[in-house]
Structures are given as C-alpha cells and as structure tokens.
Design a protein around this nucleic acid. Sequence first.
DNA 1: CTGGATCCTGCCCGATACTG
DNA 2: CAGTATCGGGCAGGATCCAG
Lengths: 217, 217
Amino acid sequence: MKSYGQYCGLARAAEILGERWSLIILRDLLVGAKRFNELRQGIPGIPSNLLTTRLRDLESAGIVERSLKDRHVVYRLSEYGEGLGPVLIELGRWGSRRLAAPREDEVPTDSSLAAALLTSRTDVSVRPFTVEVTAGPAVAHAAVHESGVDVAEGADPSAQVFIGGTGLRGLLAGGDAKTAVADGAVTVAGDESLLTEFARAFRAPLDDAASTPPNGK
Amino acid sequence: MKSYGQYCGLARAAEILGERWSLIILRDLLVGAKRFNELRQGIPGIPSNLLTTRLRDLESAGIVERSLKDRHVVYRLSEYGEGLGPVLIELGRWGSRRLAAPREDEVPTDSSLAAALLTSRTDVSVRPFTVEVTAGPAVAHAAVHESGVDVAEGADPSAQVFIGGTGLRGLLAGGDAKTAVADGAVTVAGDESLLTEFARAFRAPLDDAASTPPNGK
DNA sequence: CTGGATCCTGCCCGATACTG
DNA sequence: CAGTATCGGGCAGGATCCAG
C-alpha cells in the first residue's frame, strides 16, 4: 500500500479506501459482520487472494476486526470502521444519482440491494413495517422504523409486503407507484397498502444527465 | 477503468474514486478551480501523465469540467462533482481521527492544510475573522464566518491573525491554547485574542488508538 | 467445506524525457 | 503551459492447490 506523501486526513483515508475492492468490502460489512466465504460469494469477481490481502490491510488500519465465533472466522467493522458508515451512505447516495439502467456486465447483488435500501432511506417519518425487496437475482429485506431502517441480505418470508420488478429504480427515483404497478414494472405482494409507505420511506433521485453523458466522444 | 460488475451506486462511485490520485485531485478542486500545473505542483509525486488521465476520467464521469479562461485551461468541479463536497469533508474528518504525527515521508501541503481547515470547521458559532495558518512549508488562509468558512491555499498578508507551529495538530485536537503558546508549540501573530476563537471554530479530534496501532505485528 | 496460499500473466502505476 | 511518449516494475486478475 503506497503513501501519498501528504500529511492529510483525506490522503490517509484514500490510501486504504482507494485500494481496489476496499469500498465494496466495507459496504458489505456495513450491512453486517460476515465470514470469508460469505464475502467472497457476495462479491462476484473478487479474487480470493485479493480478499485476503484487503482484509489484512483493513485490519492493520484498524477498520476491520477479525474474530472467532462458533469456531468460524468472522470479520466485522471496528468502532473506527463504523465511523465510515455515514460516509459510505452519503457516497452511495451520490453515486446512485447517475445510476440509471444497469450496464451490460452489471448485476444487482443481495449486498448492493441492501446497501441501496440503506442509502435511500429518507428522513421522512412513516409507520413501521417490514419489506422484502427483489431485483432480478438479488433479494434483501428491511425493517423500516419510524425514522431509520435496519437492512439485511436475503429473503424474509415474514415480511409484511414484497416488492420487486424492473421498475424498482424508477420507483425510488420518485415515479408514481400506482402507474408502475399498473404497467407491471413493479410487482407487489402482501399488504399492498404499504407500497405507498415504501415509496415515501425510500428515495434515490436520478440526475437528468444520467441518460445523456456530457462526453459524447 | 474497470467495472466492479455490480449495479450499485457505491460501486459506481468506487470505480472512479478508487483510482489512484482521484480523491487527492478532487480535494484540491474542492478548495477551488485550478490549472493543470497548479494541480501538478500542489500534488507532490503525481506523474503528469496520470494527472492527465485522471482529469480525463473525471471529466468523462461528469465530475470535473475543463474550460478555457484567459486563454488558459482551467479544471473545476461540475455540479455533480460539487455534490461530493460533503462526502470529502466527512471522509477527511474520519481520516484525521488517526492522523497523529506525520510519517517519515509525509509533508503538509498548501492544499492539504486548506482541506484540514475545511474539514475541521465545527458548527460552533463564532465572531467572524480571517486567519493565516502555517504548518511547516504549507500555508493556507481562511475567512471564518459566524457559521462556516471559506478557505484557500497560500498566504494572506491581510489576515487578522497568523497561527503556526508544530503544535497545530494538538490545538485542533482540543489541547489548551495558552499552554501551547507558552510552550512555543504554537506561535501567534496579529490579534492574539482571536486564537481562542480559532480554537473554538476548528476541531479535529484524535483517537486514543492513533498512537498505539492495534496490530503490533 | 472453510479459509486461505501459490503461481503466472497482463495491465496500470511511476519515473523520466520530450513536444506543440 | 499543458500535456505526450516511453519503458520498467509491481499490483491486480484468474486459476489452481493446500491445510484444518
């Protein structure tokens, strides 16, 4: 890991967070502590040796802690690492402003979907509910509180409402829920009245420029 | 620039911000628009071809805009790039928690000092003043408003107070100003009564662990 | 099966020299 | 001033192998 040669907090942060895969690993750990293979399978494309190296780097930097639970290795954020939570959430929110359609090679993952729920939770107060969200192959669920949200990867059969479909991004961007459901872009099961609450609780605006990049070259 | 293969706002952000030097360049542009050679000289160690490449990448991503002013090329943050401001400030604040003494190869730069003033401005309301800060070879100045601050690199001979010395980090961490001045760790010129205001307006806490890394290996 | 380690290939970074 | 050209080395990527 190479220094930027500057006595600067941002430079120090960049030294570790600028390493490839670091931010993705931290995003997954922000949702919850995980084992090595959970991280590996949750992050498609990461070479196992790089995952090893990054986890060691993050541990040396005091951001991640390695512990043994139930005779298994578990990685979790340290207190210092938890301090990155608000930064990651704001950064994800910023990135999603230009996140229109997925690129050819992109897939949603359970973790990225969970992270999307985390970053898009507004401060709008709603009545509490639980929701399972599906986007292609990805599934995540959330317990929405009056203010705030708890998220996790995977299914939740006991959720009060189940939301999915290709129109999810549009819904988060502020599209009309009824229209999306009528078009079949968004599917709802369970307590359908909660769709309105969902649309109020989660919001990820989309820049106009997202579809027309400034650089035509 | 390689994709992470995930349909995720944070992953998209990581693709561009995770490239080496990206965050440092953006930090400098956050303080103000700059010309190519200003960036080059302000970022010690960056190869000129990488600066070129990064600026093009950032431009393609819609974060930086290249314009001609006075027959000179000027780089500035786009509106989308400005949206990174709060993220960079929070990230710098997070990084500075472990920023104790400079490492062997580290120097403060004008830009990093300016960024430090930006990130460490508290929301404490103070009476407005102007200050020039010196840390080793680095100089920056700030106009402190009742809430908020404007910063820039370099000297400001018209500043109301001039603060410098090796004890600056300790002062920002909450050390007693009078003691630091008495010890010679902090030097003050101009309106010395403003040192108290400075100490209230700027704060960058230091983790206890900063001096004793968890990984002894 | 988990949690890695090892090896090889190729590309990106870094340093320096050069140019419109 | 604002970049381009070039070249060596090191880290990333991918496959495979190994220990508890």
